[in-house]
């Protein structure tokens, strides 16, 4: 399996290789953060907004912590929270979407109308609304975003499952007397895996950007936890003094999403090719 992947990767276009490389670098940073980072996450090592030096590669932040260290820990915090949120959102969305498609009838009608209404409220506004009531803690953040985002996953998984459900082989299985769980897991899921995996990449990007935006607004991951969105917010004042280092965490966000997008594009291209032959 893994050696297959390496072989595929060798023949992949440069963009895809770049994407995979970016993702691996980020993962290493996230997993081994305490080993890589030169200082502790909240350790104050110098003055406010010090310039780049050998002591502190990217300089220091608004209260004198090492920016590079914060960046490494930020990878760990932001990526893991976004990842957990996306997983949760997919679990809810796929279960709902598949059930709606396979069972149909009023269950489908009911769930779909509900999701229609949920989706007609812009997700940022909805999130701000709920966070203002529940307050901003990490579990609340994960729960709220996962539930809101799962409506999008529901839409897609219902649509792709619908494409499969109308196929005769699903009808054949229904007429055989198979139960809903068999239909969902054995007939529908294997045939919707490709678009769902691609969507996972894209939704991860969306959730990741969304959490970063909330953090940037001061309503996401709370200090002193290192996180890229809040780092931009906290250090934005430096930009007006012509210091560009606060842009580094923002760039880190952008590069990861670009990397994931490149891999998703490659994946979509590959799976589309399989369908043709």
């Amino acid at each position: 399996m893994f050696s297959n992947f390496l072989k595929e990767l060798k023949n992949a276009p440069f963009a895809a290789q770049l994407g995979v490389f970016i993702i691996i670098v980020y993962l290493i940073a996230a997993i081994f953060a305490p080993l890589i980072a030169p200082y502790a996450e909240t350790e104050i090592i110098g003055d406010v907004w010090e310039e780049m030096s050998s002591k502190s590669w990217l300089g220091t932040d608004q209260i004198g912590r090492d920016l590079f260290t914060r960046l490494i820990y930020g990878a760990r915090n932001t990526i893991s929270i976004a990842f957990v949120t996306t997983i949760l959102s997919f679990f809810i969305g796929i279960c709902g979407g598949f059930m709606a498609a396979v069972i149909g009838g009023w269950i489908d009608q009911g769930m779909s109308r509900f999701v229609d209404i949920m989706m007609s409220i812009p997700i940022l506004i909805f999130a701000l609304m709920i966070l203002s009531v529940l307050g901003t803690s990490t579990p609340v953040l994960i729960g709220v975003i996962a539930v809101l985002d799962s409506t999008r996953v529901y839409r897609l998984s219902r649509a792709v499952a619908m494409d499969v459900v109308v196929m005769d082989f699903v009808e054949a299985a229904k007429l055989r007397g198979e139960n809903t769980w068999y239909l969902m897991s054995r007939e529908v899921l294997p045939n919707t895996l490709a678009p769902l995996v691609a969507e996972f990449g894209l939704r991860f990007c969306f959730v990741f950007l969304f959490i970063s935006s909330l953090s940037f607004l001061g309503l996401g991951i709370q200090p002193p936890t290192a996180d890229w969105g809040s780092m931009v917010r906290e250090n934005s004042g430096a930009i007006t003094f012509g210091i560009l280092t606060p842009l580094v965490p923002a760039a880190a966000i952008a590069i990861l999403t670009i990397g994931v997008n490149l891999v998703v594009d490659w994946f979509l291209h590959k799976t589309a090719g399989i369908k043709d032959s």
């Binding site: 940037f216 969105g229 934005s236």
Partner: peptide
């Protein structure tokens, strides 16, 4: 593709 991947505030600060 790049613009979609970039957070709004990044564009703003640039």
């Amino acid at each position: 593709l790049s613009t979609i991947s970039v957070p709004e505030f990044f564009i703003g600060y640039i």
